[in-house]
Design a protein around this nucleic acid. Sequence first.
RNA 1: GCGCCCGUAGCUCAACUGGAUAGAGCAUCGCCCUUCUAAGGCGAGGGUUGCAGGUUCGAGUCCUGCCGGGCGCGCCA
Length: 594
Amino acid sequence: MIGHIQELIENALEHLIQREEIQLETLPDIQVERARNPAHGDYAANIAMVLQKQLKKPPIEIAHMIVGALNQSKHIEQVEAVKPGFINFTLTKQCRLQVIRKIIEQKEDFGRNDIGKDQHVTVEFVSANPTGPLHVGHGRGAAYGSSLVNVLKKSGYQVHAEYYVNDHGRQMDILATSVWLRYLELCGDQLRFPDNGYQGDYIVNIARQVRAKFGDDLRVEVNQIFDQVTKDESQGGDKEAHIDDVIQNSKNLLNDNYQKVFKIALNEILSGIKDDLEDFNVHYDEWFSEKKLHQSDWIDRAMQRLKDGEHVFKKEGAWWFNATYFGDDKDRVLMRENGQKTYFASDVAYLLNKFERGFDRAIYIFGADHHGYISRLKAAAKALGYEADKVDILLVQFANLFKGQEKLKMSTRSGSFITLKTLVDEVGTDAARYFYVMRSHDQHLDFDLELAKSQTKDNPVFYIQYAHARICSVFRQLDAQNMPYNEEIGIVNLKLLDSDYEKALIRQLSMYAETVAKAAVSYQVNTIANYLKDLAQSFHQFYAHCKIQGDNEDLRNARLNLCSATRYILADGLALIGSSAPTEMYSEDFDQDD
RNA sequence: GCGCCCGUAGCUCAACUGGAUAGAGCAUCGCCCUUCUAAGGCGAGGGUUGCAGGUUCGAGUCCUGCCGGGCGCGCCA
């Protein structure tokens, strides 16, 4: 519709130029937007005010000229030039009612657009190190990333969702060694657990599995492990050096068996992460292994590519990427003095891999604490020969958990974090997914666990789902009431939907498609959440004032069609953000007979 | 110190990316169930959009400087 109005205005301007009533070198961009205030019609154009300087005429005068030159349109009932210089368009009733028919016809395909037609994008999100279960901090990235994937798909993009598994490197060695030490304790050995080892109970659980599989086969003389190692921090030494020494000894003592422990630890944690994400309604197309980058030649290829472009130099024994040349504030090490490749080297290789797989765009979703990565990744993209704007890095701010007024303090360090699984068990996937995305991703979020669980209108998830369930309930009762639903009769009589509440609801429905499109373009998934709340509100207001199951067959069926369309949109929108649309609401506290 | 993000009703947030009288919910106060889920609805009060300038027809939105908050600045992952 916006396009249609733009065309009308463009034609009008051309007429005016032809008739030499105005002079314009080039046609300006014609902005048409939805009117905020229903009193201003359905759409508004600001073109007259934009042109006032060029034409040296009062905007209201220009507006009147344009209105006078507009062609007739069967969709538009009224055009008005008003106050400062807006041109307001009011659609015909017929045109406004069409959205109901369209939704009922297209069902879950309604709201699709082709903004991303023929575009392949990869969205990488969460990518937490597989050294422990996901916690609530990861939850927001998961909810946001997954919702964004859904929104982009709905907008026609070919989307590939990826989780980058850091299954290589020192952290993983610390994990494997931690598991092995716990295993030895289970075998009855006494030892001093390193300060920097992974402390959580889940390590002991994995150790138990190792023991179940290997019995006592992996036992060694404990003293050997701590032979010649640097003192730990709490012994007045260095915790990093200490754990590195312990790891080295463990590798030597276990030989081939080290890899077996390593594998069990990795698989256990990774499958836990996968399960948690599945339960959270988060799905991936690919779990991309960092180790594979090392085993194949991707890292070497990426390094070579940088070297070919003369973006690499050697300093103090290490190989550096001259990231500053591309706008980063520091140069970055690719290979350390000891020959080990850095994490950043893998990142560059992975980025190259993404582009060579043919993606038009690589979207990254990081926690806000990683914002330092933006400039170095973009620098890498440029150095590899790609445009920096093919890489979109989105930062997700932290969420503060509350229980009512009480702020839950959590530290990732001591292992006293709340896991994502605990959260989902507590409030459910539907509420958690909604709460995580209801604010803009680049804004801090207060997540109130009590509110998320409450079954009142204060809880937006409940409020929205209740609207959906209410509609389902209305339809369930029709047979018993002997009030059959006839879609065709309803379609013919849509014009009977004439109250302010019905108009408001229809208007809300008509905004769904543009809301989805806007969310896709701006990456603002929260607009979907806000929209759903507004839609639910419009519905509840309609419901409270308009009797649906009435005796008038024409009106009843028209209203049922309105309900039906609303139900589709509620369900579709909820699905986009990963929440479900229940057909009835249950509560332990609520007594059905009351 | 440098860099990034953010300051909107007492609280939590919107505002269609520069448009018309800045909107919701909570909290406060008042109303509506013999009627499809009151698990809901209707109404009232509440604002110098952190402060000061600038850009233009027009600024919560863009630019500069302050004030206040969050995060980041390793041959760590």
